[in-house]
């Protein structure tokens, strides 16, 4: 199992999603599901990207979600 960090770029700016998935395709499907569930007013999504992948080991895995700095 991997933990993916995704960036969703919309007309209003970018926000982040995290998905625990077996592969990249599944990670995008999970992000879709969460977007549909969490965003009430439909927004124009320009693109969705996976920017980082971590392998989930016994100790787990995680991300700190914060605005990206210029060098990131």
């Amino acid at each position: 199992m991997n933990l993916y960090r995704l960036i969703i770029t919309t007309d209003e700016g970018e926000f982040f999603a995290v998905a625990a998935a077996e592969n990249e395709e599944q990670a995008f499907q999970i992000a879709d599901r969460e977007i549909q569930h969490n965003i009430l007013t439909k927004t124009n999504i320009r693109d969705i990207t996976i920017v980082e992948k971590k392998i989930v080991k016994k100790a787990g895995a995680g991300y700190l979600i914060q605005p990206r700095k210029a060098y990131e």
């Binding site: 990249e24 693109d47 990207t49």
Partner: peptide, 18 residues
Amino acid sequence: GLKLRTPEGQLVDAYELF
């Protein structure tokens, strides 16, 4: 490098520039 899903739903390699 990153993974991008195109508007057509395809998964492709993509890149950001710095």
